[in-house]
Simulated assay, not measured.
Amino acid sequence: MPATFDTTRGGTRLLFDSIAGITTTVESMHRKIARTAVPWPVAEDRAHGAIAAAVYRLILGVNDGLRQGVDWTFGQTPEALRSGRESAAEVRAIAALNGVCGDHLEATDNPLGTDMQLRTAQQRLVLEPPLLREAIPEASGHLVVLVHGLSMSELGWRRRGRPCIDEQLGNDLGYTPLFLRYNSGRHISTNGREFASMLQALCDNWPVPVESLSLIGHSMGGLVIRSTCRYAQLDGRDWLHLLRRVVCLGTPHHGSPLEQAGHAFEQAMRRVPYAEPMLFGKLRSAGIKDLRHGNLLDEDWQGHDPDAPRPDSRQAVPLLNGVDYYFAAASLGRNQFDPLGHLLGDLLVRADSAVGLHRDELRRLDIRPEHCRVFHGRNHFDLLDDPQVHQQVIDWFSR
């Protein structure tokens, strides 16, 4: 299926952005090599430096001119030719791209940047009573919203042809399941604030009185939910009185070792001659960097250099009183004593982080042990579609 108009336009913009970024990187590396090519001091060749700088400026100028011209051409396209529905492959590709550089896409107003939206399995919802009633004629007073993780979309809840947990929640327990789609490259706190506002609009405009609200988050989605609840609490959102339970699947409550390792590698490479200009890892999104420690609030990242090494200084965010929390973790180990599970966790998140454990008592999440479960012999993404995980979630919802 051919790409839609917005995907083509956004991809073209990103291509020109990439050319500009590569050119700037090459220029930076050129200067670095020119200054440190030999171990003894040399006189700076100003003529060579001026010529090189002029060449790079020319390349950037031509690239910018072409970008503006192509973008203007897209702007002249008739409205009738801009319609089209994204294919599943497009949705997945755009979601992956948003996880990697979604903050850049938003900052440059790129059409590939995903705007936050609530959806059914089939369509995007407009949060107005008549349109909600038309989209969901059998709306229940019990709502459950599923929140995906980094670089994913609502399609990620359906894998390998297996049924999604939303079907069981709807058919067996009478819930109306909805999905959140969002730009996972933005700061978690930015998404949390917006989601808190969106849930208020959802509850205010739902076609029948809302009796209960439940939230399920996978990976980063669990952090977005906890951030959302905190901002709803600070802003006095009414929907908090309707919140009954929160389920977190493989959520790095205290950070992801993969992002921590990536940051440590980047710091080591900064000491290698000529390597710093090519540290493309430092361009990873704000959302990814938030996963280093599990940042939930604006204060956790504002005023700090996200690429500088610093200890975990985030504010402690306790669980809400009166809400039932349930945490599920996966582990590659065959049992709790298997060293493979302690070493690698589920490949992305360690089990102790996923169930809220922490050496610092102030950061440890106060959740009942019987509300936590570790699924052995499974990886991070098995939590999305494993039948035993689904049954555990159904059991938690049935309590």
Rank of each mutant, 00 (worst) to 15 (best):
P339W: 15
P309C: 02
P309N: 01
E266W: 10
M269E: 05
L279I: 03
V323M: 11
A261M: 10
H241T: 15
H342A: 13
V246I: 09
H263D: 04
V317G: 08
G341I: 04
L344D: 05
R226A: 01
G222H: 08
L234S: 12
F327E: 05
R244H: 15
L297G: 04
W301R: 14
G341A: 05
K289V: 03
P273H: 02
L240V: 07
A329D: 02
H263A: 12
R284T: 11
D338C: 05
R226C: 02
I288C: 05
H254T: 07
T251F: 04
H342E: 10
G341D: 02
D298T: 08
S219H: 10
R271T: 03
R310L: 04
E266L: 14
E299S: 05
F280N: 10
W301H: 11
S331P: 12
L348E: 00
E211H: 12
D290K: 13
T228W: 11
A261K: 11
G281M: 00
S212W: 01
S227P: 04
G255D: 03
M278F: 09
M278P: 00
V323R: 14
D298P: 00
R284A: 08
L343S: 11
A268G: 14
R245W: 05
L296F: 08
A232W: 00
G262L: 13
L340Q: 10
A329W: 00
D298F: 06
K289H: 12
G281E: 01
L320N: 07
S219Y: 06
V208Q: 11
G217P: 06
D298H: 10
M278Q: 09
H293T: 15
E276P: 01
L343F: 08
M278L: 10
A275R: 01
H254K: 13
V246G: 04
R270C: 01
V247R: 07
R310H: 13
Q302F: 02
L234K: 13
D290I: 12
A316N: 10
P309G: 04
L340K: 14
L242R: 00
S212M: 02
D238W: 09
G341F: 02
E299I: 01
Y274C: 07
H254R: 12
A328S: 15
S212F: 02
R314D: 12
V208E: 10
L213E: 05
D300S: 09
L344V: 13
P252M: 07
H342M: 12
G345A: 02
R271A: 07
L297P: 00
A261Y: 09
L347H: 04
A316W: 05
A232R: 01
G222A: 11
I225Y: 08
D290P: 06
H241R: 15
M220I: 03
L320V: 03
G287N: 06
L319E: 08
D290H: 14
R237H: 14
C229N: 11
L223F: 11
